[in-house]
């Protein structure tokens, strides 16, 4: 199953979530933010090379600190040379080999995100509890609907108050998928800066419980999505 982690707005914690989800789900993390990647860098060929036909998708997957990663480099030339239409096929090849893929999508709702959502089996929407991020999540949800890609789950990130809990409940109704609240925790931000999943960085951090709940919900959605599309 290919999961696209997206949300429209930048800076809501998509990459942090993607890295941690890949760890929890034992999936390959694909850094599909072609121009401004955020996941840990690799040493071998990267997604730019794959989308320019210079490397096979499986060649570009490497293990970085115990996480299977298809990295992306910060190269403008690389981003320009990338052929987006090759992305769905590349994701599928990696999915076939590893069984699960988590795609870290860039911000915005341009065609790059379109191809990523189209190439995924389901999306995980990430937002923060503020109006701008929530509106972007709704727009992303709409695009996913148009592309026939179901929403597996919703994450309301960086929650700090009880009011955020209420916002998450409303987001659940609005976006039509189980919503998990991830609290703002300093170890989570630190772990991402260090390029490691929270589980490896600080297994006692409270945010890990939220990731565990989210993982269960996503696994449940995956079963549901597969059943829903089953022939009658």
């Amino acid at each position: 199953m290919i999961l696209a982690v997206c949300g429209g707005k930048g800076g809501v914690g998509k990459s942090t979530l993607a890295l941690n989800l890949a760890c929890e789900l034992d999936a390959v993390a694909v850094d599909a933010d072609l121009a401004t990647p955020d996941l840990p860098r690799g040493r071998g060929p990267d997604l730019h090379d794959v989308l320019a036909g210079r490397a096979a998708p499986l060649e570009a997957v490497e293990s970085v600190d115990g996480i299977d990663l298809l990295p992306c480099s910060r190269s403008l030339a690389g981003a320009r040379a990338a052929d987006l239409t090759e992305l769905p096929k590349a994701l599928e090849l990696v999915d076939r080999q590893f069984g699960r893929v988590v795609v870290d999508c860039p911000a915005g709702l341009a065609r790059d995100v379109g191809y990523q959502i189209h190439g995924a089996d389901a999306v995980v929407l990430v937002t923060t509890p503020d109006r701008a991020a929530l509106l972007n999540a709704v727009r992303t949800r709409h695009l996913a609907g148009e592309l026939d890609t179901p929403v597996a789950s919703v994450v309301v990130n960086r929650a700090t108050s009880d009011e955020d809990r209420e916002i998450a409940a409303r987001a659940e109704g609005e976006l039509g998928a189980t919503t998990t609240l991830v609290p703002r925790r300093e170890p989570l931000a630190e772990s991402f800066r260090a390029g490691t999943p929270l589980r490896d960085h600080d297994p006692d951090c409270g945010a890990l419980t939220a990731f565990e709940t989210l993982t269960e919900r996503i696994e449940e959605s995956e079963r549901q999505i597969t059943e829903d599309a089953e022939p009658a």
Partner: peptide, 29 residues
């Protein structure tokens, strides 16, 4: 991918999105 109903084709939806190009501030580091 099998879906429960018809609707607009994904190709048409993708074609309607804004063109993607790397932002000019994404400089090599």
């Amino acid at each position: 991918r099998a879906t429960r109903d018809g609707g607009t084709s994904p190709e048409a939806v993708l074609a309607s999105l804004d063109d993607w190009s790397p932002p000019s501030d994404a400089l090599d580091r």
